[in-house]
Amino acid sequence: MDRRILFINPNASSSCTAGIADAIAPFGPGLEVTSLADGPPAIVTWRDWFRVAEPLCRVIEATPADAYVIACVSDPGLEAARTATDRPVLGMFRCAVAAALARAERFGVIGFTAASLPRHRRILAGMGVEARMAGWVPLNLPMEALTDAVAPQRRIAEAAQRLADEGAEVVILGCAGMAGHVAVAREAAGVPVIEPCRAAAAAAVLAAMEEVVAPVSA
């Protein structure tokens, strides 16, 4: 079945966009990644979060697809983006949390920066699952350091181990920039690790299929 699923990175980091593309490559053809050229270097503050909502809507309106993914793990502009199309629009953090809770009862999150916590809490409260978060540990690294192949590994390992010690039975990588660091987090934590790009890809493929498959006759 031909399909087109568009991942939209709302920041302007080329290394982050490349990492997203690498993470979803195993899902095969039809998954594409783009970014907002005039977006912020990273989604750090609430102003960044609100700033990208309208540009995301414009990309969706101009680019036909079977499903869309807001490729940032604070799901910026998701509610607005859903008004720009009748196709599914998914947020990475929501997909990652759903995937985590399919694996275990308690999850932990490795955050991008401390400023991300209020946005994550808002999403978790909306999903009704905030009480199931065992811990949340920020890295407080710039995006270009986070996407480096080596530089953030020690910090990621320390955060993953701490979350496991705090009772997390599964760990979520809380930024698309961490997509290349699943193995180091898993080894340090000793529990499953959810990478949000892949979690969103799996959910988007299912959503796109549901859009085109005819209902089963009774």
Rank of each mutant, 00 (worst) to 15 (best):
M133T: 08
A67V: 06
A42N: 15
A218R: 13
G126V: 12
A203N: 14
A149F: 00
R82K: 14
D66G: 10
R198G: 07
T45M: 10
P118S: 10
D165H: 12
A200G: 12
R51C: 02
C175I: 14
P138V: 03
L173S: 10
P192T: 09
A21I: 04
I172Y: 04
L124A: 08
A179H: 14
A37E: 15
V171Q: 10
V212S: 02
L163M: 15
V97E: 04
V33L: 04
G135L: 08
A81W: 11
I172Q: 09
P40M: 05
G135I: 09
A179K: 12
I172D: 14
C197A: 13
P88L: 04
L31A: 05
I172T: 13
A204L: 13
A104D: 03
M92E: 06
A96H: 06
E169M: 03
A80R: 11
A98S: 14
R51Q: 07
P142N: 11
E210V: 07
G108K: 11
H181W: 00
G19R: 01
G174M: 12
R87W: 00
R155C: 01
R186W: 05
A151N: 00
V205M: 04
D2N: 02
R154K: 09
P76T: 07
A208D: 04
G190L: 04
M127K: 07
A125L: 13
A100S: 15
S116T: 03
H181N: 06
G39C: 07
A218Q: 04
I123P: 09
R198Y: 04
